[in-house]
Nucleic acid binder design. Structure first.
Lengths: 338, 338
DNA sequence: TTGTATGCGTTATCAA
DNA sequence: TTGATAACGCATACAA
């Protein structure tokens, strides 16, 4: 296991160089010698060290990937797609969970750079991630942003058309008959939140309804954030008939708060959000969502990254936008009571 | 970005060695020299290469992790927990999806070894994974098995008490009134399937019911496998009143087939399975499941691995078994019709 | 067809 | 307190 080329060479009675040739499938080795070397390799369980070869070639075959949380059903497929695409190109994935923590993200980035990953695929925490990434982008280090853009950072990216997605979702709610629709979203610092807010607003204005600032509830976009925000929604003077949650975890938190308050969806309150959870929809098709093709987006992003690593990309930053699709289920219906 | 110690040394007017000392926080460098070096490091955006230092220290700070599929809601939290624990110990995670493919698994294992990961945390494909892992276990390379054991491989492991879990789940179905319970599971080659079958059988015999081989349907434990198996269940001469699916994806497939056949759960047929999907349960608490503490199991497994890497483990293989818990929801009720 | 020398970027060792 | 040298494991360039 800890055998080196030299050990193999000694056992086979040749030089280290000849062993190296056999390993890399280079020509110029007699069949007989090759056989002896292969026997020695098997005998010693020799596995060539990528650490050493990386040092020479300046290529580690490693790609860094940072997401807020792999266990989030949106990011699971994202990571899966990226890994599959990377593997097919001969790369391995170093996976990091930033926990939406800017400092942790920075730590990961510098660590990954030290490990000499050849590129970085990242769903950044937010606009502030620019602090963590700016210098590398400036230094032409291969980076692709996924899911979220970073204001002021000109960089390859793959995102959803969040504005139109949110517009479609809210337009649907309006079509169903909702007039007061709360939007539970994150701080202005995250591009997805900003864009979805723009779409929300557009749908409302398209319908000739008044845009009401008070119906936008800013929070953290995790379960607890959704929970808290929903409580605020319920406490509002004039209660909305529907809640639009900016993403899946937020919707879960909203649901939790509603249930606790004995409010049934959609009989008492409608609910819709971004991100579908595929298999779960089979078990219980309940939530109306705007579905993002997470795995495809991630594969596309990895493809961009591979091109940049391979040098076939050109200097210009490339922007890929996916459409996504509205999936109407029961949760968005107009309340029967109230 | 591609600056080396020497570049820094030159800029600071010192030797490479002194730079190295500063980077590693070693003593014996005057405050003034240290400052000059730190300035040079910042100036050049210097990031020390772990590739080079790994070569010397023989430690990469890398841990390999192989799971069938991160996007599976059971493995997402598994990977998340492992990564968190690894990070806190200063390790990074190389993530691989075996796709339950033995050849792919082997390829990953050898690749990871070449990358000189210091240990391997793996949810193996099945007993045949012994081919892929046996030599490394024999060579005392740090490996911990997670979720699944491998017959004949004496190795650290963290698993659930599958026998008792399945027993509890099936005992519940019997208590509710079910008498003919189908079990949809995988080939005998996977330890979890074997153990859950044993638990299924035990619950049935404990209740004084006859164990019927024909009620055990072997298939692949993915959605398609569950789908096909459910169709067989429905075609059975004497139709069971409940289906016990060996895991989450299988249950999804079963559900899909039932829905397609216009069979409502639980009005026409009950359903229960292993693995809960936490947040989803909030959205729609429907499926009766036996819940595994995936993230905790994974953290424990990583802990075992870290101990083995650190050499504080002892030669004996350690076996950790988690209990899990039954969560009764509506899907397991006794059918009203039929 | 095979081998020797050299260097990748870093650090351990020993010397100054 | 600082530096010169060698070595980690492999591969490139060149020589034999």
């Amino acid at each position: 296991m800890t055998a080196t080329v030299r050990d193999v060479a000694r056992l086979a009675g040749v030089s280290a160089m000849t062993v190296s040739r056999v390993i890399n499938g280079q020509p110029g080795v007699s069949a007989e010698t090759r056989q002896r070397i292969e026997a020695a390799i098997a005998e010693l369980d020799y596995a060539p060290s990528k650490v050493a070869s990386s040092l020479i070639s300046q290529k580690t075959g490693l790609i860094g990937m940072i997401v807020p949380d792999v266990s989030n059903p949106f990011f699971g497929p994202i990571v899966r797609g990226a890994e599959t695409t990377a593997r097919r190109a001969g790369f391995k994935l170093l996976l990091c969970n930033s926990e939406s923590d800017l400092r942790l993200e920075r730590e990961y980035v510098t660590d990954l750079i030290s490990h000499r990953v050849e590129g970085l695929l990242i769903a950044p925490v937010g606009d502030s991630s620019r602090q963590n990434l700016g210098r590398y982008v400036a230094g032409n280090f291969p980076i692709v942003l996924l899911d979220r853009l970073i204001a002021g950072l000109d960089c390859d990216s793959v995102t959803l058309d969040n504005i139109d997605g949110a517009r479609q979702l809210v337009a649907h709610l309006i079509a169903v008959g909702h007039r007061r629709i709360a939007f539970v979203t994150d701080a202005d610092e995250v591009s997805t939140g900003r864009q979805r807010l723009a779409g929300y607003r557009k749908a409302i204005e398209d319908a000739g309804l008044p845009f009401d600032e008070d119906l936008v509830f800013h929070t953290t976009t995790d379960q607890m954030g959704g929970y808290r925000a929903a409580q605020q929604v319920l406490a509002a003077a004039e209660r909305p008939s529907a809640i639009f949650a900016v993403n899946n975890m937020t919707a879960v938190g909203v649901m939790q708060a509603l249930r606790q308050a004995n409010i049934t969806v959609p009989d008492d309150m409608a609910l819709a959000c971004f991100d579908d959870v595929q298999h779960l929809a089979v078990i219980s098709p309940f939530l109306t969502v705007f579905d993002q093709p997470a795995e495809d987006m991630s594969k596309a992003a990895m493809q961009l990254l591979l091109e940049r690593i391979g040098g076939t990309a050109g200097k210009q930053a490339r922007t890929v936008t996916f459409p996504g699709k509205l999936i109407v289920r029961v949760s968005s219906a107009l309340p029967k009571r109230g």
